[in-house]
Design a protein around this nucleic acid. Structure first.
Ligand SMILES: [Zn+2]
Ligand SMILES: [Zn+2]
Ligand SMILES: [Zn+2]
Ligand SMILES: [Zn+2]
Lengths: 162, 162
DNA sequence: GTGAAATTGTTATTTTATAACATAACCAGA
DNA sequence: TCTGGTTATGTTATAAAATAACAATTTCAC
């Protein structure tokens, strides 16, 4: 058996996310192939959100054949399944903390260490929808991102690199 | 005197925005040069938000020398002065409707015609700040964008092209 | 098995953004 | 009005992000 890609143990939330992803895809009849699963795993194993080309580099380091479309197609699948989010302000991708229900997501993103916190405030969602409804605007996609500094970085802790 | 770039009359809100921009820059000691002013004018005259290269094409059509840095530097200046916003979800730029007070902005963006509506809901702002404060997160920049269909496009009016 | 559909491989190109350095304009003080 | 520092623009080259187009492979129902 080929050894796992890294000898670091996988973070518990990453393992859980992968299990839930497999379950959701099974329920939906969507195919979480080896490549797609590996891309999701890479995203979850990273402390900071990754760009498409950073993911590509990791795949290549593993000896896989790889070109940009390889990664972008996997990302498209994961986005469609609501398993990851794209952070438009940074052109990076992060695992969804509430998969299963497709949603736009609301994010706090630390510019120093890359920490991502996904909110899900119903009042915020409601307020946004209401602003749109007042104007008879039909919302199809939503981007809510706040960039700044996380508590650890404000205190100079600097745990993981961005 | 060289005739103005286009014989179309400038929309009233565009003219007003340019006057206010000149005033604000004067007050701040910032130099709204001819190039910067022209880029702002191009942005305001466009019915749909423009990307950097679309602006570059217009400048070149006018016979100006131009390369990407020309446009990006002008855009950086206008962003710093809070005269325009960058719409991260589309990589385009739009004029700010409330310049003078630097802010992140909250936008409704029509995917069909490019119409941009800039909100300024204090409760929304407050709610976002509160979510961050609860987590001791320091917000430095904010992106709130809702993509979808404007009332006109929902009714099949289709006034201006994106 | 066979064939259609889906997935992945591969090459090339487009689009978006920045680095690095040269030239020109501006402006404050001598 | 020189002069020299600062700011702004011109110019060339390159980096970074995303997609187009087509070939090869895999999957799966029949
Ligand atoms: Zn999510
Ligand atoms: Zn941090
Ligand atoms: Zn604004
Ligand atoms: Zn519209």
């Amino acid at each position: 058996m080929p050894s796992s890609k890294s000898d670091r143990p996988m973070p518990p939330d990453a393992r859980q996310a992968l299990e839930q992803a497999a379950l959701l895809c099974q329920q939906r009849g969507a195919r979480l192939t080896e490549l797609r699963r590996r891309v999701l795993e890479i995203i979850w194993n990273s402390p900071a959100p990754l760009g498409a080309y950073a993911i590509l580099d990791i795949l290549r380091d593993e000896g896989r054949p790889g070109a940009p479309p390889t990664v972008y197609r996997a990302l498209d699948f994961l986005l469609e399944q609501g398993l990851i989010h794209r952070l438009a302000s940074l052109n990076v991708f992060t695992g969804c903390r509430q998969p299963g229900s497709h949603h736009g997501g609301q994010f706090l993103i630390c510019q120093e260490c890359g920490l991502v916190d996904e909110l899900s405030n119903p009042r915020l969602e409601e307020l946004l929808q209401n602003e749109a409804a007042i104007r008879q605007f039909e919302v199809l996609a939503q981007t809510v991102e706040m960039l700044g500094r996380c508590p650890a970085c404000r205190n100079g802790v600097a745990r993981h690199a961005g």
